[in-house]
């Protein structure tokens, strides 16, 4: 589903990603962990070209983002959830969710609203359709953001530290939605600090540090028997 080859990304003279190779299979849930500044968010943002790679290739669902693919077309298939939600504050929750399907996929308002209400029901916010984002709690906003991304019926979902900006008591309501999504077979790449989620939901765990993938494998395996020194050091601090 996602095929990354020899990906490099520099900001000015600073090289953040130093040659990443990564293949994500359909329906696979890949969890990316690592210290801050390790390049994990940049890696994720290269998967929908919010960051433009310096070199290397990123192919998603057969579309070469670093080649001749129409980036807007490609992004229709790649949902993204941000750390700070990024809901549109001037629109109701319903409008937040229906805007892109109507403008990009040319779906009728009636149908878009029907889908939006179903999605809101699914993330447990069926009664919030007419609320404005600033009236919602962080956890509720993030669930709306997930519904908004899902409304495009994407083939892949990217999560960029989706619970990092939340109060602790709201983390689980968001993780639960992500869990059910994973169980339904969505292909997901998740950058997170939630080790419990990584262990429980992840099919594969990636430990990134210094712009390279240091270690990867089955999450339980990596958590219990990290092979690399740097992985051990990191896990000893966060577990």
């Amino acid at each position: 589903m996602i095929d990354i080859k020899n990906l490099h990304k520099s900001f000015g003279g600073h090289e953040v990603l130093k040659g990443i190779d990564l293949h994500i299979n359909p329906q696979e849930v890949v969890v990316i962990i690592g210290p801050s500044g390790s390049g994990k968010s940049t890696l994720l943002r290269c998967m929908n070209l919010l960051e433009v790679p310096t070199s290397g290739s990123v192919v998603v669902d057969g579309m070469d983002l670093t080649g001749d693919a129409d980036i807007n077309k490609a992004r229709e298939e790649i949902g993204m959830v941000f750390q700070r939600f990024n809901l549109f504050p001037h629109m109701t929750v319903l409008k937040n969710i229906t805007l892109a399907p109507m403008k990009v996929r040319n779906i009728s308002q009636e149908e878009a609203e029907k889908t939006a209400r179903e999605l809101l029901e699914r993330v447990g916010l069926g009664d919030k359709a007419d609320a404005y984002p600033p009236q919602l709690s962080g956890g509720q906003q993030q669930r709306v953001a997930i519904a908004r991304a899902l409304a495009m019926k994407p083939k892949v979902m990217l999560f960029d530290e989706p619970t990092s900006a939340l109060d602790p008591e709201m983390v689980n309501e968001v993780l639960d939605v992500m869990k059910s999504l994973a169980n339904e077979g969505m292909t997901m790449a998740v950058v997170t600090h939630e080790m419990g989620f990584a262990r429980e939901v992840g099919d594969r765990l990636l430990f990134v540090d210094g712009g390279t993938i240091i270690e990867q494998g089955d999450p339980r395996e990596v958590f219990e028997n990290p092979k690399e020194e740097r992985t051990k050091l990191f896990l000893s601090k966060v577990l």
């Binding site: 807007n72 992004r75 229709e76 549109f88 892109a100 495009m152």
Partner: peptide
Amino acid sequence: GQMEAGRSLGM
């Protein structure tokens, strides 16, 4: 983030 959110939805 508003621009990023819009663009990431394919707009």
